[in-house]
């Protein structure tokens, strides 16, 4: 089964790094196949950018996302530009402080987290993408959570490993709480 994931935001948020970590987790630690492609403008920071990840048990023929099953939005512009692509029944995940949207659709499975705020509380808003990855590891099954954490720790600078590890755990715990809350409502 091929999974297409689209991650959107603006330059400087680590959008491409987020896609890279996801693909690395699938390739190196889950021993599956993954591609990560990126799109960005000529600006170094602030312009809109996205990364596209395809994960599969088979070698990947075509490395572009056409109908993502999972979309992760770290900016309002990224959300608006791309949300129509998300497949019916797809998972929409966003940073609740960065995306203020009234038009979430019923056919999506929606999750949100104040990832940037959590990262600031942990000492560096640059880690918002790592908080988000922890959250993703809780709310959708793309790669094994341990694989994802290993890929995070392999990627970040050695001196920041503890902080990033805490950021990942913060996102994962928050995701776990949301899932528990939903389970309680259903019973």
């Amino acid at each position: 089964m091929e999974k297409e994931i689209l991650i959107t935001g603006f330059g400087g948020q680590g959008i491409v790094l987020t896609g890279n970590i996801l693909g690395m987790a699938a390739t190196l630690y889950d021993n599956r196949h993954a591609t990560m492609t990126q799109s960005y403008g000529p600006e170094a920071r602030g312009g809109s950018c996205s990364s596209q990840v395809v994960i599969s048990d088979e070698p990947i023929l075509f490395p572009y996302v056409e109908r993502p099953q999972v979309m992760i939005c770290m900016s309002q512009a990224g959300f608006q530009k791309n949300c129509a692509m998300l497949a019916d029944g797809g998972i929409m995940i966003w940073d609740s402080d960065l995306v203020k949207s009234a038009e979430l659709r019923e056919q999506w499975d929606c999750y949100n987290i104040p990832a940037t705020r959590f990262a600031e509380e942990l000492g560096n808003k640059m880690m918002a993408n790592i908080v988000m990855l922890g959250f993703v590891s809780a709310v959708c099954e793309l790669v094994a959570p341990d694989s994802l954490k290993q890929a995070v720790l392999k990627t970040v600078p050695p001196k920041t490993r503890d902080k990033n590890s805490a950021a990942f755990d913060r996102g994962r715990e928050y995701g776990g709480e949301i899932l528990k809350g939903r389970a309680r409502q259903e019973h």
Partner: peptide, 9 residues
């Protein structure tokens, strides 16, 4: 550009 910037195994 795509082959250059694409990450894969």
């Amino acid at each position: 550009e795509v082959v250059g910037h694409m990450n894969e195994r």
